[in-house]
Design a binder for these strands. Structure first.
Length: 645
DNA sequence: TCGCCGGTCT
């Protein structure tokens, strides 16, 4: 046995037993290590994630006068790309050109392409592929993957077709990646073609291909097809399960996503932070705080509470469930604060009406030299909007244009239009719409809502036309205008609108509130006294109303949309769904001092808002109400929205 | 002794 192969066997033994350090000690004792030994050490360090050490070894090797070969380069390029060391990578690239590896060796070339795509230097990567004399599937795949992962899905498809036309057969790596691009593009026709190709190539049992197929169907919203793919899987792994769960959430199938998660656990597949953030998203969307808290428990148990994905998902959960303190607790425990986690926290404050907290965090972000992105500004503007910080909002909006290279989207404008409109600066709001490229229905409806708040019938009628041009049968718009006429006392127009709504067969979604008491959800509709214990509820409700009247509550009938006698109007106010839900929750939890969390499918009504403030001071309970748009935290007679919403 | 794959957050 030669000296080299003896050394090699020794290294291999140590590394395979997991003792890279032992191998390293052995290596360091060699007087003049051969190139094969250097390569072995470098690649072992890279594959063990010890990238920085791999680079040190490479540099030491060069200092020692050892000439790198194709093996050295293919390992070390990966190290440079992992650490984002562009300069060093380019210098090594130059050396590989001088030594004649770049265009003549497939291993070196594909590692180079991979490195440049990770540096986001797509032109360089593509040029290398073009120069390589004999291109193989790995080389093409490296470029396809690079394009796909940076969101250049059309380019990925082009390169793929180019590869196929050169008679090079795709492998499972190529197909996995290209399926994802089809999914991202929503190109189900190409996606199905590739599905056929997967079968034809005999790769349908490869787990990565299956996962990508699953993801492709889910991104194209073909949930049933994706479930079919999933059911045909022989061995679903952690990634496959996760892919299915997060895809279901994306398609609004939260309940199924949660049952799939439970099935995953039953199948003894462990979740990781990917899985858990998907499940948390399901909990946040449907405000299932209890389940979310259980997931939080699992996150702590498996030790990923500092993970930025799990963290952002938790912040989002607590934000959407109205618990900003918990959201902040999670945020403060993150190991790495990045722009997404800060955005999540700002957004959590924003939707709960804690504008000043949101702005403080925005300032801290700047002092941390984290570059804000478009989402940051949506969150900050929303924070100003939900707290009535009009001037601050205008100032922030102006600064986006002057200080940042961020393109303003319709969402930014919609937020500003809402902000201006609600503070009665309707003309300014309308002027701002002129700046929006292709203003959509949402933009105009935002202005329409502002008209409703301020009873601007004339402008509303003009704006209504715009909205209906863009969305002729939109129920929300008709209802908005009906409400506007009703609050302006124009009952003839209300009747007219109602008949239009009837003719168009538009259905008004009924107002509904629900409340979560002792892990049971109870739903209430306005005026609906069919709850099994409605007798007790009504008793409590009437008692509450009489008591808060003594504190100054005065039923405000302008929120009643029917033209009824005053007495009947007042009665209809009393049976609003949120009042029923609160009465029920107080009855169920009497003697306890817990917070009450209620949810409403529409926006909370003005009279109920006032009433809830009184109830919070009367009972000493904190009431957290999530309506269709935001949260209201009622505490000691005050609401976090500052009566501005 | 070497290269290319699938799932997460605002």
């Amino acid at each position: 046995m030669s000296y080299f192969s003896l050394c090699h066997k020794l290294f291999d033994g140590y590394v395979k037993c997991g003792s890279l350090a032992e191998a390293r000690r052995l290596f360091d004792d060699l007087p003049n290590p051969h190139i094969v030994a250097w390569n072995y050490m470098i690649s072992s360090h890279v594959s063990h994630g010890k990238t920085a050490e791999a680079i040190q070894l490479y540099e030491k090797m060069l200092e020692g006068g050892v000439i790198p070969d194709e093996y050295t380069f293919s390992s070390v390029f990966k190290a440079f790309s992992d650490l984002g060391l562009v300069r060093k990578g380019q210098r090594a690239h130059a050396l590989s050109v001088v030594l004649g590896f770049e265009i003549f060796n497939g291993f070196v070339a594909s590692a180079l392409v991979d490195m440049y795509t990770k540096f986001d230097k797509m032109r360089d990567a593509h040029l290398i592929l073009d120069r390589v004399v004999e291109k193989d599937v790995v080389l093409f795949t490296a470029l396809i993957v690079g394009y796909a992962q940076r969101g250049h899905d059309n380019e990925a498809l082009q390169v793929f077709e180019n590869m196929v036309s050169q008679g090079i057969k795709a492998n499972e790596y190529t197909l996995s990646s290209i399926l994802i691009s089809c999914g991202n593009l929503g190109n189900i026709v190409k996606g199905k073609l590739i599905h056929c190709l997967v079968i034809k190539s005999g790769l349908e049992s490869a787990v990565a291909s299956q996962t990508s197929l699953l993801t492709m169907y889910l991104r194209c919203s073909l949930v049933d097809d994706s479930i079919k793919v999933f059911n045909q899987l022989s061995h679903a792994n952690q990634v496959t399960w996760t892919s299915l769960i997060s895809g279901l959430v994306e398609n609004g199938r939260e309940e199924i996503a949660l049952s799939t998660f439970r099935e995953m656990i039953r199948s003894s597949i462990n979740p990781n932070s990917f899985t858990l953030s998907g499940v948390l998203q399901a909990c946040s969307s449907i405000a299932m705080l209890e389940v979310g808290e259980q997931i939080h428990g699992i996150i702590v148990k498996i030790g990923v509470e500092g993970d930025k994905y799990a963290g952002a998902a938790l912040i989002n959960l607590y934000g959407k469930c109205g618990n900003t303190d918990m959201a902040r607790f999670v945020f403060d425990a993150l190991t790495e604060v990045d722009v997404v986690s800060i955005n999540s926290m700002i957004y959590a404050y924003a939707q709960n009406g804690f504008g000043h907290e949101a702005l403080k965090l925005f300032e801290r972000m700047k002092s941390l030299r984290l570059e804000p992105n478009d989402v940051t500004f949506i969150s900050v503007l929303l924070a100003c909007n939900n707290s009535g910080l009009v001037d601050k909002g205008c100032q922030v909006f102006a600064s986006i244009r002057s200080n940042y290279k961020i393109e303003l989207t319709r969402d930014h404008y919609a937020c500003m239009i809402d902000l201006l409109g609600r503070s009665r600066r309707l003309e300014e709001a309308e002027m701002l719409i002129k700046e929006v490229r292709n203003p959509d229905m949402v933009i105009w409806r935002t202005l329409l809502n502002a008209c409703r708040i301020h009873g601007e019938v004339e402008m509303a009628e003009r704006v209504m036309k715009k909205v209906l041009e863009l969305a002729p049968g939109d129920e929300g718009t008709h209802i908005l205008l009906t409400n506007l006429y009703a609050s302006a006392g124009k009952w003839n127009q209300v009747i007219e609108m109602k008949s239009t709504i009837r003719d168009l067969k538009l259905k008004k979604s009924p107002a509904m509130s629900w409340v979560d008491v002792d892990r049971e959800v109870h739903t209430f509709m306005a005026g609906d006294l069919s709850h099994p214990i409605s007798h007790e509820i009504l008793e409590i409700l009437h008692e509450l109303i009489e008591k808060v009247k003594t504190l100054g509550y005065n039923p405000d009938t302008k929120f009643v949309l029917q033209d009824l006698e005053e007495e009947k109007k007042i009665r209809s106010l009393y049976y609003h769904s949120e009042k029923l839900a609160i009465a029920f929750a107080l009855w169920k939890t009497s003697g306890r001092n817990t917070n009450i969390r209620i949810f409403k499918n529409l926006r909370v009504c003005g009279d109920c808002h006032t009433w809830l403030k009184f109830v919070s001071s009367l009972t000493g309970r904190d009431i957290i109400a999530r309506d269709a748009k935001r949260f209201h935290h009622f505490k000691e007679g005050v609401c976090s929205c500052g009566d501005y919403w």
